[in-house]
Amino acid sequence: MDLIRLKNVNKKYKNGVTAIYDMDLSIKKGSFVFVIGGSGSGKSTLIKMLYREEKPTSGQIVVGGVNVAKLRNQKVYKLRRKLGIVFQDYRLLPKLTVFENVAFAMEVLGAHKDETREKTLKAIEMVGLKNKVHNYPDELSGGEQQRVAIARAIVNNPKLLLCDEPTGNLDPEMSMEIMKVLENINKKRGTTILMVTHDKDIVNAMKKQVITLKDGRLINNKEKGTYNDEDI
């Protein structure tokens, strides 16, 4: 079963730049996919369209049964509840503790207190920060902050986890830790993970499905792919 399906997707920005050309792509449920490509290859645009930060100019995008291309602004939240998103810059709230930051994602959906507490602790445990529950983000290292962000992204048990260069700000050691966390989530929860990156070492070490973009076109889609400099 495909969790993500793109059909003839084009994206042209208002300033005239075309970021995505006629893209067809499908991603299976439960898979772990890297999206690689140089700057301006359209990988960021692709991921933004998947969580409906951007709308495609034409074509069809279906994520978990939701027709993203036709989703109205007011209904975007319905899509967002089905997926988790992790960014390079963590996007945590500085005045909230680790627990509060993760619980925030459930509170705003109106979840029950006990349920919030239970799921929040589970997610924090999954990313290995059980002993930092009451710390504030600025007391944590970059890798730990990113793990908080991951915990927040998976607390609602989404089918899909989108990661936009999650290791971009981290050193190789911390990056590998993050990758271990992500792989663990993928295996244990069956969460489909789509990760945009330009970290060669990570891609080569993980041996996962790799999608290569160049100038807005999909040029390579390989199971157990590697980071090929010549393509980019």
Binding site: Q74, Y77, K78, R80, R81, R91, L93, F104, A105, L109
Partner: peptide, 9 residues
């Protein structure tokens, strides 16, 4: 962030 985690308008 609220928008990101799926809070309704």
């Amino acid at each position: 962030i609220m928008r990101l985690v799926g809070a309704s308008n």
